[in-house]
Design a protein around this nucleic acid. Sequence first.
DNA 1: ACAATCGTTAACGCCTCTGTTAACTATTTA
DNA 2: TAAATAGTTAACAGAGGCGTTAACGATTGT
Lengths: 104, 104
Amino acid sequence: MFEALADPTRRDVVRLLGERPHRAGELAVAAGASGPAMSRHLRVLLEAGIVEDQRVPDDARVRVFRLRPDSLVAVRAFLDQVQADWRVQLRSFKRHVESREEQR
Amino acid sequence: MFEALADPTRRDVVRLLGERPHRAGELAVAAGASGPAMSRHLRVLLEAGIVEDQRVPDDARVRVFRLRPDSLVAVRAFLDQVQADWRVQLRSFKRHVESREEQR
DNA sequence: ACAATCGTTAACGCCTCTGTTAACTATTTA
DNA sequence: TAAATAGTTAACAGAGGCGTTAACGATTGT
């Protein structure tokens, strides 16, 4: 998940697929990567469940990739948990300061 | 940013620091990492701006690390942008389908 | 002064990730 | 049938990430 998004080229792909579905070759050009390189990036994203592919009926050579937006919830969940904990931490720190002030 | 969070040990550290500040040694034990390994993980997180450190006045040997929760906004911004684009995409797809249905 | 503690840095080896070139499969077109 | 197109796979090399052990610097306690 995070590992899959660690690569800048793959983040570009995710951004591009956020806008609209793309074919493999389009992604390679748009992201400035070679064919083979893009192919492996796409496999990583597929295995991470971040994208899905589909062959178009007209031309069975091309693969169209699209985003699976629900897949990013895991990343968001991580952030949510950390920041929720942080708020609890802040609250207890605030209590601590206030109790010290009462002692004056 | 994403690179810093790509490592599971570092994500553990971020989770732990979400709960409360920790000393370097505590983090090493809690995350099951050796001292030197943790030291370098912490440097990565520092350089990514995800954590900050502070030496305690009582004992100048220990370093206390705490989270900088505002630093994670960049990650959240990435997700927000992608998912906002996705919603636009969905909307235009819906229009497309509806216009096809009108043709029947 | 001496020993113990906290944490970092250095040097090494290993493994994984990434890109490139070349070859290959499958499909479409001339 | 032959050539062109879309994309993947294979084999190689380079670079960087990660962990370990050993040594080090700084601080604290006896």
